[in-house]
Design a protein around this nucleic acid. Structure first.
Lengths: 195, 195
DNA sequence: GTCTATAAGCCGATAGAC
DNA sequence: GTCTATCGGCTTATAGAC
């Protein structure tokens, strides 16, 4: 029985999301995605031009939720600005405790596609990370941080490092240290000796 | 004509090194490695138990050269300790300018194998990163940096972040910012307000 | 130690029916 | 919009000759 097109399409993306993130891009076949979505492979090809198309769509659905998670951790935190920045890393540390956590999906996807810089997923991943960075720069600028773009960039670098190190070592202390470093940098900038 | 066993083995590892790094782990077949090494696939299986075995050996050959590159950039730099730490990031920025640069091989490999935490390549990658971290901690401790292990950890987190961000954005300014942040953290620790 | 040959199965993508 | 069926090619790994 034909379902609504949008519904089937979403079901496929949800299945792709789970499998791409869990097993990786190359290791996940369209057969497996179709089976998990409860449709045939032919239906997947009706809704998506190719596997590469589906990869980019998978990442696109993670953009907004990930950004909102960072924003929620920051907004719900109390204390000074450095303490609230550290709260973002504390939030990340919590998600990492989940059994299904397997690093940053954006980072792992561009890592697999490193030899295809023109791949559509690259643009999606880069744009997502820049959205996070721009949001941080805005928050810092609103609170009188000098060179807010530079500080925001440095904090995002520590976030990237935390994701990578956590996946490699499976040791939550790396996220704690990244949060310490971020708080140090933000606090340092506020005390008037930026850069 | 049979060559020396060690020589054939090395030839295979060199070919694997090139292809695994350029195209990724899953995207590289043993057929391609054998062809590039100028041997048959059967010979590859004579020297290595499996593809997983070869992956771990590939990363193991990158451990020492990568560490030595970091050490050379640090040792050849002049100026204060923060400036010499920044020189490491300047060195990384140079390698990134190369056309064949495709991120950190350790990071990309564990990213692809994220669902196999028991894979031998995981241990090799983790051990390599910890060697870099331990070396930095030693250098910091020798120069009177308080909490040298913490500062070394934070600098390696910035290195990881620089690798990931550079691959994603292909913008060298991320490495510069990472170097700025690292120099800031090291300088801050020396001025007596560590952590 | 290295070869030829092949097993046994999975891959992305497409043809054509309904 | 979704199905069944299949193409041509690639994958890891192994058998057995020399």
């Amino acid at each position: 029985m034909p379902r609504s097109g949008a519904k089937t399409r979403d079901t496929i993306i949800v299945a792709a999301n789970t499998l791409f993130y869990r097993f990786g891009i190359k290791a996940t076949s369209l057969d497996a995605i179709a089976e998990r979505a409860g449709v045939t492979k032919r239906t997947v090809y009706y809704h998506f031009r190719s596997k590469d198309d589906l990869i980019a769509e998978y990442l696109a659905t993670r953009d907004q939720p990930n950004l909102e998670a960072f924003q929620a951790w920051f907004e719900q935190a109390r204390g000074t600005l450095p303490e609230r920045v550290r709260a973002i890393f504390d939030g990340v540390a919590e998600t990492i405790g989940h059994a299904r956590w397997r690093g940053c999906g954006f980072q792992r996807t561009v890592g697999e596609l490193a030899n295809k810089p023109g791949h559509p997923a690259f643009k999606v991943a880069s744009a997502h990370k820049k959205r996070v960075e721009s949001w941080l720069a805005y928050e810092f600028q609103q609170r009188g941080v000098p060179h807010p773009e530079d500080i925001a960039c440095q904090v995002t670098l520590l976030l990237e490092g935390a994701f990578a190190a956590m996946l490699m070592h499976r040791d939550r202390r790396y996220v704690t240290q990244a949060g310490n470093a971020a708080a140090c940098i933000v606090g340092h900038s506020l005390s008037g000796r930026s850069r």
